[in-house]
Design a binder for these strands. Sequence first.
RNA 1: CGGGGCGUAGCGCAGCCUGGUUAGCGCGCAGCGUUCGGGACGCUGAGGUCGGAGGUUCAAAUCCUCUCGCCCCGACCA
Length: 475
Amino acid sequence: MREKLISPTEDFSEWYIQVIQRAELADYAPVRGCMVIRPYGYALWENIQQSLDRRFKETGHQNAYFPLFIPYSFIQKESEHVKGFAPQLAIVTHGGGKELEEPLVVRPTSETIIGYMYSQWIRSYRDLPVLINQWCNVVRWELRTRPFLRTMEFLWQEGHTAHATFEEAEEETLKILYIYRDFAQNEAAIPVILGKKSESEKFAGALHTYTMEAMMGNKWALQAATSHNLGQNFAKAFEIRYLDRNNQLQYCWTTSWGLSTRFIGAIVMVHGDEKGLKLPPKLAPIQVIIVPIWKSDEEKEKVLAKIGELKSKLQAFRVKVDDREEYTPGWKFNEWELRGVPLRIEIGPRDVEADQVVLARRDTGEKWTVSTDDLGSKVEEALAKIQANLFQMAKKFLDENTYRLNDYQEFKRIIESDGGFVIAPWCESPQCEEAIKEETKATIRCIPFEQDGQPDRCVYCGKETTLKALFARAF
RNA sequence: CGGGGCGUAGCGCAGCCUGGUUAGCGCGCAGCGUUCGGGACGCUGAGGUCGGAGGUUCAAAUCCUCUCGCCCCGACCA
């Protein structure tokens, strides 16, 4: 018998690592800070990709691919960008046995090389907007890593667009943020808070950064995606210019936005429980696991024949039959619960006789018997309920652990005891932000779009303000 | 890069302090049999240069020196 999973309430970090390994989402690689994404984890990523990719294409974006290597000089062209990324760069200095004349950076993100290409491609206002996305890997020399949440190499999509005006760029930046939210809430069943990053937390080189923040099971925040309005910073650094209708040379306004394999970590930490992973049906690599039950060979034959018959009714779903001989049904139940499969179908000799099956929900544990008539629509209904319930549970958790206050002692008490999100008035001074971070380890996750506009006093310094910021400890 | 911990079979560990047969245990793995509606059991078996290098010794997993790697916690970050 395998040792039981550690409880998330006992040690959330340890639980997270155990779930990822045991559910076979990923494994540690022989290189420090790197991981192998295993087939089950990669299938989840592919479903994430599909569902995002569809949304990008529906809004006019096209996929392309830019090189992994970037000339070192490119990174240095935008001063804030180089400051932000220099400490995290992997740099290739040798190739083919010789020292390179100019070192090559392994991309940490592609604003620079894409900016360069855009400067070659864009000449006229008629060329705009350029709406390109790429799916790729990037490398950042992280000192402290954790599977999916922070690895030295990770997979993501990065969108890069160029526009004629600030307004268009801003519209694009927000449009993408709303796409991310739609994806997070409707596909991953993760409720999110949208907002703007503070100056200290924004992307290196951006005019401003919008973010999508989610609450994990330990009440810490995770930045689940970001969308940046880069203003004309990169356009000026890379000479991305166009002639407008009046034959005037203008700098473009660019944006960039990304969502990474970190999102898989969010799915694990938002929905998971003491039994392991809980995957939202819309993204689950296996939506329905069928566990046959038999004693004799004769029963086995009957049960498997019946399953063959039923499978035709379930063609609309991602279904797997676990007909392994070497494990008992009870073992399989636990195994597939650990791996987060939303719905289980149990079928044994009794069920074959009665033309019925037992359905079991991963989210609630509920088990019930249904006749095999119209099984497809019953499964569909169950999956829809699970999808909705996962979102509602997560939303309830988020709401119950979000506090609105303006008293700093209360603020500290919440952050340091149970944890949670705190929405508190903030005077916009970096000094208050920094002091709060020093004293509580809570950072400004964002300035939420949703603001009540009521006059109040900064939770730290007491200065009058109407602005409220979202504070939390974060991964 | 600072602090802590750990490297012994695929995984988890014991043995080390106090050197001494053939290096053990649990899980997993293989074969056979009995099981199978919530993590089954019996029997048999395979699997180890004890992270690496040097040293001390008649003798090193064990003592000494150096080294490599990994994990956790901090600072930095998607």
